[in-house]
Computed example of a mutant assay.
Amino acid sequence: MKPFPKLVYCGFMDNDIKILEIDLFDFNPDLQLVSFWNNKIIIIGAAVFDKLPKLTWLYLDLNRCINMRSESIVSLTKYIIRHVKYKCIDPETITSDKTIDFDQDFENLEMVQAAINELKENITSINEHIANIEETNVQLKEKMEEFSNHNGSYLWIVIVIFIALLAAGGFIAYKRLNIYR
């Protein structure tokens, strides 16, 4: 969906779509209506619809694990995932001693999302530090180039001062020798 950043309405009706990846709408923040009517959706990525702040209509009618539509969406991702997870459970895989704890799954999901957000913030901070270091390196490089451009003239100044000091020292030594004679 990356090539369509200004997309407002989209429909994927009558297909064999089974999975809605979490990053499906990363580049489509203007979407207001999305329809996956009559597909075979069994997996919906966590927070896939939360990335769409303008989404007001979502149609998931006639899918294998979910058959719903919603208007005036605030944030349905948690509800949708819970619904799909509950409805798509294979009865043969559940034993009588195994309980399904959807709330625990969402707490884990929220913890993972919080950790991801913290990592993103750390990466942003590290990138800012790297940018500052690169800027400092550029400034140091400019200073070194400036110094090396003047290095020849500085060397002559040092040589002239050295010769002047040597001459002054020689003159003083000559005067002292004349005094002691």
Score class of each variant (00 low, 15 high):
164 A>T: 11
143 K>F: 08
64 R>D: 12
128 E>C: 04
165 L>K: 00
8 V>R: 05
57 W>D: 00
173 A>Q: 10
81 I>G: 02
10 C>E: 07
153 S>P: 00
164 A>F: 13
44 I>A: 13
63 N>A: 05
23 D>C: 11
153 S>C: 00
92 E>K: 15
93 T>I: 02
180 Y>N: 08
115 A>W: 10
115 A>D: 14
101 D>W: 04
129 H>Y: 07
92 E>W: 12
157 I>K: 12
11 G>V: 03
5 P>A: 09
54 K>A: 09
76 L>Y: 09
94 I>S: 08
10 C>I: 15
69 R>H: 12
125 S>L: 08
151 N>W: 06
40 K>P: 04
61 D>Q: 09
28 N>F: 06
85 K>S: 13
175 K>F: 00
139 Q>M: 11
67 N>Y: 09
10 C>N: 02
57 W>P: 00
77 T>R: 02
149 N>C: 02
151 N>C: 02
48 V>D: 00
104 Q>C: 00
100 I>K: 01
16 D>Y: 05
62 L>V: 03
74 V>C: 07
54 K>I: 00
113 Q>K: 14
84 V>Y: 12
143 K>T: 06
96 S>T: 03
38 N>W: 09
135 E>L: 14
47 A>P: 03
41 I>M: 06
41 I>P: 06
122 N>V: 11
53 P>I: 05
149 N>K: 09
35 S>M: 10
33 L>S: 14
26 D>H: 14
33 L>G: 05
96 S>V: 05
40 K>A: 15
131 A>I: 09
4 F>R: 06
31 L>D: 01
113 Q>S: 06
111 M>C: 04
28 N>L: 13
69 R>K: 13
33 L>M: 13
4 F>M: 13
133 I>A: 10
60 L>P: 02
123 I>Y: 06
77 T>L: 01
53 P>H: 11
77 T>K: 01
159 I>A: 11
28 N>K: 12
5 P>S: 06
100 I>T: 07
79 Y>L: 14
116 I>M: 07
134 E>A: 13
131 A>C: 11
108 N>E: 14
118 E>F: 04
89 I>R: 12
132 N>Q: 12
162 F>R: 09
69 R>E: 03
106 F>N: 00
162 F>Q: 11
118 E>V: 03
70 S>D: 02
108 N>V: 10
103 D>P: 00
25 F>N: 09
165 L>N: 03
38 N>T: 12
133 I>S: 08
167 A>G: 08
163 I>K: 11
155 L>K: 03
3 P>W: 00
69 R>L: 01
86 Y>Q: 07
